[in-house]
């Protein structure tokens, strides 16, 4: 039964939180303490976090800025990467320190480098070899490039982030063509789609993420708790799938 106040029934591990100020949008969440307080308010136990500076400016500098947000076991760092020697070297160093459980793709298409095998195979091969999952923001990608390139790396686990209703026609073909791809749910709202995708692909392919502070933290969590997903399915979507992915 719905009430005026909401707390999740299952443990929650948010797959998609951005921290820090981006160049054009100061964050409403100024520091780690504020982030943890917002997570507490929504009943979110843990979160994967990346730094806003990695989105449009520099993955390498942004990853340095992410360090200031770490130090609490509830926050898992996600390092951003692009297919340059300097970026891969940074990720390799972090990996050598056992600090890499996932990475996030920096948008290079806006700078003229498509997500094609000739540009990305070296990076993707390294990630696949080391069983490091890759988060890919859908707003910056081309569906054909995704399928063409990722089908060359069938063992690589990917998380497709931020599907919106404008991606509706892509979602099913992408999940069908990429058996190791998961769908993060922060923006995906067409009516009934949580249950429909569960029916078609299984709850194991879906991940709760808020994409806070781009979006309010509790909204999609509330939605997931008011579907006909079983409690086991809900637990998978809210935390279990992400734990499994990060564990490799």
């Amino acid at each position: 039964m719905t009430t005026l106040n909401f707390k999740p029934r299952v443990p929650v591990f948010d797959a998609n939180i951005r921290v820090g100020d981006s160049y054009d949008a100061p964050s409403p969440c100024p520091n780690q303490a504020a982030l943890l307080a917002e997570m507490d308010r929504h009943g979110i136990a843990r979160a994967v976090i990346y730094h806003a500076q990695t989105e449009e400016i520099s993955p390498i500098d942004g990853n340095h800025f992410l360090e200031t947000w770490l130090g609490d076991a509830r926050l898992t760092p996600q390092w951003s990467v692009l297919p340059t020697a300097a970026s891969l070297a940074q990720i390799e160093r972090l990996h050598g320190q056992n600090r890499v459980s996932s990475v996030r793709l920096h948008d290079t298409r806006s700078a003229g480098l498509p997500f094609r095998p000739w540009a990305y195979d070296k990076l993707l091969t390294w990630l696949s070899t080391h069983q490091i999952p890759l988060w890919i923001p859908l707003p910056n990608t081309d569906a054909d490039e995704l399928v063409t390139t990722l089908q060359g790396h069938p063992e690589l686990v990917t998380v497709l982030v931020g599907a919106h209703y404008v991606h509706h026609l892509q979602v099913r073909p992408l999940l069908a063509a990429l058996p190791n791809a998961y769908l993060e749910l922060s923006r995906y709202e067409p009516i009934g789609e949580m249950e429909a995708l569960r029916d078609e692909f299984g709850a194991r392919r879906l991940l709760y993420g808020s994409w806070y502070p781009r979006y309010a933290m509790g909204t999609m969590l509330f939605y997931l708790h008011h579907t006909n997903l079983s409690e086991d399915e809900l637990a998978l979507v809210c935390a279990g799938n992400l734990e499994r992915i990060l564990d490799g």
């Binding site: 209703y165 709202e189 067409p190 509330f222």
Partner: peptide, 8 residues
């Protein structure tokens, strides 16, 4: 139905 009333 462009957006689910549950999320909104």
């Amino acid at each position: 139905p462009l957006m689910d009333p549950r999320s909104q």
